[in-house]
Design a protein around this nucleic acid. Structure first.
Lengths: 338, 338
DNA sequence: TTGTAGGCGTTATCAG
DNA sequence: CTGATAACGCCTACAA
């Protein structure tokens, strides 16, 4: 069912049909109606591939995310989807995580699709083949969560946020503060946050403790159990993301430690789910939807002007701190539970 | 950078370039190499739109999901992605939830993209305009989680699962068992699960209690608070999904009720996160990834034979029950916490 | 206001 | 083994 059949059925030329869909006012009301009826009864849907081929633009924004198993990206994607729709674009989300060929393969696929621009969260903007490919093709793109001087990024001041958090914990009397992250090498976000930890500890005159890496979520339990076992165990855990923080709270329970009375756990991300946990998760909040929205708007604006966003377009969005219930002073008395 | 430029640079015709990418053995090793080098230095990526237009098939599977904010669909999508890749297809996931125009709009968009088939989770297979559109176009599709006699579905026996759960709760001494769901009208899954509740209660000789609907997650707190307030409050909550169950556990805490000592809470979905909660969530588990995988394989198989899956292709996958820690006998003694 | 025709990048057919 | 060419569905000058 192409434009041809609609034209035949309506007794007009294909050009007229095309106009009905693209510049309706250039067609007589009567003709227009006839065409619309023909299209409706035929169930005609314009072929996006043909249109893209002809127009040399697709009206599609590619979205590359690490995974959708972490709600933080789900929330972000929602912001992206809404903003894209508002800007007249549709999106094609791809995950680099459980996709066979990672970031570069995903970008190649999106390039083949002729996306007009891309929103992406990469593992490391330095030496990213994916970004190189985009630059080579002069495809406009915006990074989310990443932070890099050579690329347009929408993110928060992760380093500052964690440094401030460490100060807050120190003020609560914590001295043995340990940072827990996923696979450090897999994410420049984790690096930023770790730098924040180091800075914060330094500024508070505390000794930074060894970073605890939990590369595979599945195998987190033993690592965390070991961490919480010794006499010198930390009194506070700064987690590189909320999912990790949730696992840490579980590990604490398993180890017989009460949160927050005996162990403070703080996350990073501000996923909504944290609000429903008990104890409610204390966390550094990022405006995830807003971040998606902002990135898309940046991109759409650039697209409209037919130029490509540079590093100077970067935006640092404000972060926050959700009080929650998993964070307390080092000598807090156990919460009585009835 | 089209096939043209590669051809020119390699000093061959476009036909030869095309062959190098599609039937490499029909080209001399030497020519092939020249073309590949030209393509590489040019950064050539075959135009998928042109290819789709010419081939009349895209190699793309459309995936329509209600939302990605619920991890259950994230897990499912992972299964879909892996299976699709294995079958030589790529996917385009769309959410009907926060998309402007819902299921039908999403399907239209996918049709415009010339997807070869679709995997979808719809609100209600009856009178679904989306499904009607697919049938009219004779696009192969498979439903996930939904269950309907007139469509090919991959799902679990939700009704039986909930009925069995109710029996289990009754055996634990529970009498006042209440079901909690989201917006009942928004999901035939919720309906199935509710039917299971009714059947289970009936079979146990218990009086079914009024269904508690929590249409908007955001506003769940007051509704649940009211539910847990009275003297006649339930001793067990059967939740239509895990996210809801998590909220119920929070509501219990807020109401001063200990789970599971004073209130049993059981979910439905088996999201992985449930394992990390304290108390660990007791839930009816669905094989979410497997479900995605199964649906895709069904679809891919049909695509290969060039036919479209019918209702008889439906598959009921086995479900399970995760013991967890949020479910106990009605007179369980409070857990001592140190 | 409406119709005709060319070309977007590919693949496939048919010659050579 | 390789090259020329038509056609996929659409948009848009240009012509009528």
């Amino acid at each position: 069912m192409s434009i041809q059949e609609v034209a035949r059925r309506a007794g007009v030329s294909i050009a007229t049909v095309s106009r009905v869909f693209n510049v309706p006012d250039q067609v007589t009301a009567k003709t227009r109606k006839r065409v619309q009826e023909a299209a409706a009864t035929l169930g005609y849907v314009p072929n996006a591939n043909a249109r893209t081929l002809r127009m040399q633009k697709s009206g599609v924004l590619g979205v590359l995310l690490p995974t959708l198993l972490n709600p933080v990206f789900g929330e972000c994607l929602e912001g992206i989807a809404v903003a894209a729709a508002a800007g007249g674009y549709s999106i094609v989300p791809i995950t680099s995580g459980y996709q066979i060929d990672g970031e570069e393969g995903a970008v190649k696929r999106l390039l083949a699709d002729n996306v007009d621009g891309m929103i992406l969260v990469v593992s490391n903007p330095d030496n990213s083949a994916a970004l190189a490919a985009l630059q080579a093709r002069r495809i406009p793109y915006v990074l989310l969560y990443n932070r890099h001087d050579a690329h347009p990024c929408v993110t928060v001041d992760s380093e500052g946020a964690v440094a401030a958090l460490v100060a807050r914990l120190a003020a609560l009397g914590h001295r043995r503060i340990t940072m827990v992250c996923g696979q450090l090498s897999a994410s420049d976000r984790a690096h930023q946050r770790y730098r924040g930890y180091l800075r914060g500890m330094g500024e508070c005159g505390l000794d930074a403790r060894e970073l605890v890496e939990v590369p595979f979520m599945d195998a987190a339990a033993p690592t965390l159990a070991a961490l919480l076992a010794g006499a010198d165990r930390p009194t506070a855990l700064v987690c590189s993301n909320d999912l990790l923080a949730i696992r840490c709270m579980r590990a604490a329970y398993v180890a017989g430690l009460q949160v927050p009375a005996q162990l403070t756990v703080v996350g990073f991300d501000g996923i909504e789910l944290g609000n429903d946990l008990t104890p409610m998760l204390s966390t550094i909040t990022q405006p995830n939807r807003e971040m998606g929205r902002c990135g898309v708007e940046l991109l759409v604006r650039a697209l409209a002007c037919d130029d490509i966003p540079g590093p100077s377009a970067s935006v640092i969005l404000p972060h926050g701190f959700r009080e929650g219930e998993s964070c307390a002073g080092v000598n807090a008395r156990p919460v009585k539970r009835k």
